[in-house]
Design a protein around this nucleic acid. Structure first.
Lengths: 148, 148
DNA sequence: CTAAATTAATTGCTATCGCAACTAATTATA
DNA sequence: TATAATTAGTTGCGATAGCAATTAATTTAG
């Protein structure tokens, strides 16, 4: 096994995954930049952009762009918070609700492609290990930002 | 454990990883788009763009752009093949050779950040599982392309 | 041996992404 | 209470990425 291969695998899997997501959701006008945002709005109705960014671990600017696009497509609607007018909350529209089953099943299919022929303990293990890696990297990047 | 989490972890780790790579190699003018290409030219002197693309699993257009940039930075030089003038072969320059140890150690550091606190069997396991995922996804995307 | 098909490299286009700078609203402080 | 600091959202910018179309060189077929 070559050294440094973990990062290489992550990058190459990410790129293939993006291709599959784009293909899967093309018919709905949704690309790999929007589907995670859409799902997280579905899971947390009324969430604001800052919290969404933290959940999805994506830059605020891109969260904003995804929301703009999803709104233009009619899958979500946004409202300013009455008490704090800085905050903009997003919820699914009816059209968005209707789309969710397709999104979920599409993502399920992609996951199945990725872990095809994995034994049950391996499916468990890969998720655990990836979670740990994410935690490590996130913590480290955060520490870099806190320094500056 | 949530469903669809594998893809989410891959994406978020990829983005953090890109941030770290960009920071690590900023001083050399090299970003996360070029370092893999550079390493693979070092490992396979005289490789052409098509083979590089297949190794790195990146689009030919981007391989081309990375080579252009690395050449402009003086880390590699390119030569047309004498027998087949379609083919352009890339090799490290002396400046490139001198840079390699820093690149390798930088990537080693990033890998260590990612798998901090991993036990030895886990380090083994994560690489195996990621390799299998990459194989699955690559095969699937390839099958899609062959259909059309 | 010429025309068609294939191959490798290249360019234009659009999407995604992080960062830095900015605006507007809110909160803290002097 | 008025000013400063913070917070949430927004915009511009440059880098990375895949796809499709183009060009130039080579190979295959008629």
């Amino acid at each position: 096994m070559e050294k440094h291969s973990i990062g290489r695998y992550i990058a190459s899997i990410y790129r293939y995954q993006s291709i599959l997501i784009n293909k899967q959701f093309e018919q709905y006008g949704i690309g790999c930049g929007q589907h995670t945002i859409l799902i997280n709005i579905a899971l947390n109705p009324g969430i604001n952009q800052k919290d969404l960014s933290e959940r999805v671990k994506i830059d605020r600017a891109n969260t904003h762009r995804a929301i703009k696009k999803l709104e233009a497509l009619g899958y979500i609607h946004t409202d300013r918070d009455e008490d704090d007018k800085q905050i903009i909350r997003s919820c699914l529209t009816e059209k968005g609700e209707k789309l969710m089953p397709s999104i979920k099943s599409g993502l399920h299919d992609i996951t199945e492609i990725m872990i095809k022929n994995f034994e049950d303990p391996e499916r468990e293990e890969i998720t655990n290990l990836l979670q740990k890696i994410e935690e490590n990297v996130q913590k480290y990047v955060k520490s870099l930002r806190d320094d500056s």
